[in-house]
């Protein structure tokens, strides 16, 4: 671990030194890619996953229980491969849930924590990560190597997919944006950031197999709930509620489109 952190520091210094103004966009891009490769040696997401594991196993809340008996869809206590099949429908809540939403359910049911407390701080900052992000990092790392497999075998899943697709193409706000404005045409970018075509299987796979991710520009691990929240900010929309049906529907649409992609997260991003 120590060693990879040192490598990280060296990589950062190298990156900063080469990112000076006056390079061609290709050179700048190459620098970012190199940076990314070097970071793969020691993705800081691992630190989040380690902390998440400790939190997951710790007895907490009024019921003084851990989250170990949480059912993420494959039975209580099973973590292997669960993220690759989320969002999914849960009969006990009667809802389609993503990982973040299901974690809240378990904190409420198993630990007796109030929903209000469980959703108090969904996104952290560089100084203070949110516990939610650490738990997420731990659980998704248990799906490494598993193919994304979202089934629309239930009317609620079908509904989430259909609404999610419509949300993706819904144009509104002062700048007339939809998700498709930035994510539906090949080879486009904003400034130097490549924009994946998320309505196509290839683009959706690239994105959904690598999120949640450690984001170098934020120096933090970020979740899919955050990614969608921040894109709505860029769209000049009002803010979507954390773990709301709309965000989960969009995630269902993207994840279903990414079916078959092999999960490789938590990833690392620019």
């Amino acid at each position: 671990m120590r060693k990879s952190l040192t490598t990280l520091a060296v990589a950062c210094a190298a990156f900063l030194a080469t990112s000076a103004f006056g390079q061609t966009p290709e050179e700048v891009k190459k620098g970012v890619e190199q940076y990314r490769e070097m970071l793969e040696l020691g993705n800081p997401a691992e630190l989040y996953a380690l902390k998440g594991e400790a939190l997951f196993k710790k007895k907490r809340g009024p019921k003084n229980a851990s989250l170990e008996q949480c059912d993420f869809g494959k039975g209580p206590g099973v973590l292997k491969g669960v993220y690759a099949e989320m969002p999914r429908y849960f009969a006990d809540t009667g809802k389609v849930q993503d990982l973040e939403s299901r974690l809240v359910t378990c904190m409420v049911q198993l630990q007796g924590i109030s929903e209000k407390d469980a959703t108090k701080r969904p996104f952290g900052n560089a100084d203070k990560p949110s516990e939610n992000e650490q738990l997420v990092a731990y659980i998704v790392s248990q799906s490494y190597g598993d193919p994304i497999n979202i089934k629309l075998d239930n009317p609620k899943m079908k509904e989430a997919y259909e609404i999610g697709k419509r949300l993706f193409f819904y144009r509104a706000g002062p700048w007339d944006f939809s998700c498709a404005t930035c994510h539906a045409e090949e080879n486009t970018r904003i400034r130097l950031q490549d924009l994946p075509v998320l309505s196509s299987p290839a683009g959706a796979k690239a994105a959904m197999t690598t999120w949640p991710a450690y984001r170098v520009s934020n120096s933090q691990l970020k979740t899919m709930e955050w990614r969608i929240n921040d894109c709505y900010r860029q769209m000049r929309f009002p803010e979507p509620n954390f773990i709301s049906d709309s965000v989960i529907a969009l995630t269902t649409y993207l994840a279903y489109t990414a079916n078959g992609g092999v999960y490789k997260g938590p990833g690392i991003k620019r």
């Binding site: 803010e239 709301s244 049906d245």
Partner: peptide, 8 residues
């Protein structure tokens, strides 16, 4: 859905 799930 959006009106239910978003806030100003």
């Amino acid at each position: 859905w959006m009106k239910r799930d978003f806030h100003a």
